[in-house]
Amino acid sequence: MTTTTPTPTPALSPLTEGRLVRDVRLTLAHFRAQLLEMIRTPVAVIGNLLFPSIALLFFVVPQAAIAGDPVLATAATAQLSAFAIASTCMFTFGLGVAEDREKPFMPFLRTLPVGAVPPLAGRVLNGIMWSFIALIPLALVGGLLTEATLSWGRLVPALAAVVGIATPFTLLGLAIGYSMSTKAAIAVVQVTMFPLAFAGGMFMPPEIFPRWLDLISTFTPTRGARELFVSATTGAPLAGVFVAVLVGWTVVFAALTTIAYRRDEGRNYR
């Protein structure tokens, strides 16, 4: 699990306990509290969970040519799964954090002796957690109503890919949520998510893209996410450029999130 936490930030002045041990311990404490809070008010997350399965049901299941072919059906389910992960992370955390910042408990937590990493890493762990949950309905629809399959051997790569996709998109959501008000964050997340998802081949396979769009697509984080998940579930070869682009965006989003967190002074101005 620790490999998934972002490792940004220059060292803050160390506290007496071993810094890494303490940060991991506090990351888990923040993760647990955030998780409990979300589990007990799950309405916000449910809507995001259902949209990709409905898309699969309406756009893939009725097309016998795709639904009936194990490789095509798996790829179609996989690209919508990548979308499910990205949108769950962006919507839940982008908007969730913007809302939390408008409540007084978040500023209170910032007065505790803790730096930027544990609360942020706790949210990334939550993003990964909710991504796994988001995939359950998709796996059911894909597995039961199409020929999509996932062999036991592909399970571990697929789970690892979830972590690799959830991390950058949670960080992007956090960067947005820490930078603006809820109203602005809703607009920004929507305006970023859907064009990115389209350009990244999450709705239509990139094989049918014209050359210019395919070129743009290559450098989007969504394309990297899509290729990673399709490869992890079908075993198709994965070009190194997509991994490099996805890792690059993860670093960029981690840096943006940390900057936004440090700059944030809460919403109450007096």
């Binding site: 803050l12 160390p14 506290l15 007084p104 500023p107 002796p113």
Partner: peptide
């Protein structure tokens, strides 16, 4: 600096 806040206690505002 978080280390400076090791012996600080505050309350959430508006009982949030």
């Amino acid at each position: 600096d978080p280390a400076s806040r090791a012996s600080l206690g505050t309350t959430p505002q508006e009982t949030g």
